[in-house]
Nucleic acid binder design. Structure first.
Lengths: 329, 329
DNA sequence: CTGTTAGCGCGTTCAC
DNA sequence: GTGAACGCGCTAACAG
């Protein structure tokens, strides 16, 4: 079954193609009568403009590229859902490219986006990315880009993330208010900007609380976090609190705490994390956490990118998402 | 900066557009000399054919649509990565549409795929989907479709999944070999085909073991699973084994087991699950599980769809993925 | 071996 | 108010 085109409708209505084209987009020149007739026809035959033809003509394929280091992480799916929901409402398509946490693939994905004539790019950087030279050519093609979550220090592009510094700060404050004395903090890969900022925020609180002892560990995976946490628990026998900066880290830390508790039934460490929110509730005991809402982050980033597409002159803007604590007694 | 076109290259090489077009795709008619020259030019100017123009001409936009009930589930991200990897190697683009587990949105997503002229569709059904009438119109447009993971009983389309019946069977067999006497089984939503099949497989083993007592529960979410597991543990005090049919269910079951253990330190239930594989290792104690490999499932489904696209006459085929046990002592 | 022509489906001048 | 004609970038049928 061939799909109906503007030409078919033109013949049925005995008008020209251009009249149909104009009628369908409410051009004021067209008389209400023929406009109605054409719209009726289009409706009843389920006419949908051919995306490739429109794209060719308008030099816009109404697609945005989403480049991610990977999607097996905990809150990434929520981010995608948020982006997807926002784009769907504006009739934009989403093309997902995965960098597998390799810088070279990230560069390649940028090229793919350019070659595909995307209207804009959303990107979360790999942990190997330390500069943004590979994004320079985007300006040649006027392709707007928004960084989300995993960023590095820069001024050229808009970005959306939680206030990582503030998040680290709040988590530390939370622990101190709970009256803890010695904290073990578990962080993600050292090279990540979010790791640095969360740690800085965390430490900032301790300036006013010099009596609190702290120990820090960088973890590359859940497994790594488990090992480091197990050994840390043995070394720092007096510790009474634990912080995990992400779900990935938290999963390992929680595993370590569980098995450590087997031999120390009375062990009770105050635990707090930054998390997407799904898992902590199902840990035992449930883990208090600062909610890092992926869905909202996705929505916000997508909306910001669309703004840039519609208003090419818009200046870069940094947006920080609000976070809330979910506290378990 | 305008992108370079075939026309630009034609002028630079003083040949016609069609010569360039043919040279670039190694048409045998073109003399090696001019072919080389044109390729040189194309290379040095980073020529990339305009996808919209090619799509318009070839009536194929080299895109496949992926329709999912949601992506917050545990193994879905892995599926997407598998699909993405396979498609990338064949230069296909991926368009992801989310149905939010609502039948109406699934129907709408099919329409979107048709309207977008995708070359093929991969779909995992929502738990509300009980028929495939909404897929009928695909044959009008010759759009091949492959079902993955969440399917219903049907013969019209190819599908890729694990052998759910077999998986249920293996898990039950595993428990029996461990010498358990009374099993509590936790399953997903009752309406899902995979739930039915996993349960049938599970029960099939018990025909030969009438002395084993069993109790079954359907769970709609992790939270639901936790509640039902807690109450089940209280009711069936003699139970010595637990089965969880998916990660989502397992998360809740594990939480219940943990908190129940608090009051029953010696409680030790043999636990087994069907899982994507990431989480069970980090539970305490680690949970033996049948690995439901999302990445491979994605790869296989994508490859099968591409086969259908290239060979439109290909008959529907049902593929079952092999599964392996990951056993913890 | 290579060029000319035509057209994919649509939007957009420029006429009338 | 409406239509004719052109072109977006590319490919393919037809010439030569």
């Amino acid at each position: 079954m061939r799909k109906i085109t503007i030409k078919d409708i033109a013949e049925m209505a005995s008008v020209s193609k251009s009249t149909v084209s104009r009628a369908l987009k409410n051009h004021p020149d067209i008389s209400p009568m023929v406009k109605d007739k054409i719209k009726q026809l289009a409706e009843s035959f389920h006419f949908v403009p051919n995306a490739a033809a429109v794209g060719l003509r308008q030099k816009s394929v109404k697609t945005i590229g989403l480049i991610l280091p990977g999607i097996h992480h905990f809150f990434v799916p929520a981010v995608i859902e948020g982006i997807s929901a926002t784009l769907k409402s504006k009739q934009y398509k989403l093309m997902i490219l995965i960098s597998d946490d390799e810088y070279e693939k990230e560069v390649q994905n940028i090229v793919t986006c350019i070659d595909s004539n995307v209207d804009g790019i959303l990107i979360s950087l790999t942990k190997m990315t330390s500069g943004l030279d590979h994004l320079d050519k985007l300006s040649d093609f006027q392709i707007p880009l928004v960084l989300l979550d995993k960023t590095i220090d820069q001024q050229k592009f808009s970005e959306v993330k939680i206030d990582d510094y503030q998040a680290g700060k709040e988590c530390c404050t939370f622990l101190i208010q709970e009256g803890v004395r010695e904290i073990i903090g578990f962080f993600g890969p050292e090279s990540l900007q979010i790791t640095k900022e969360r740690m800085l925020g965390f430490k900032s609180v301790l300036n006013n609380a010099p009596e609190i002892r702290t120990h820090y560990y960088y973890c590359d995976s859940s497994g790594d976090a488990r090992e480091k946490c197990l050994s840390a628990l043995r070394i720092h026998g007096e510790a009474d609190a634990v912080f995990a900066m992400s779900d990935e880290v938290l999963v390992g830390v929680n595993a370590a705490l569980q098995s450590f508790r087997r031999d120390n039934h009375d062990l009770s460490l105050k635990t707090v994390a930054i998390s997407e929110g799904y898992l902590p509730e199902f840990m035992f005991p449930p883990v208090s956490h600062l909610v890092h809402n992926g869905y909202e982050l996705g929505q916000s980033a997508a909306q910001l990118l669309l703004d840039h597409i519609v208003h090419p002159e818009k200046k870069p803007e940094k947006r920080f998402l609000l976070t809330n604590f979910s506290v378990y007694p």
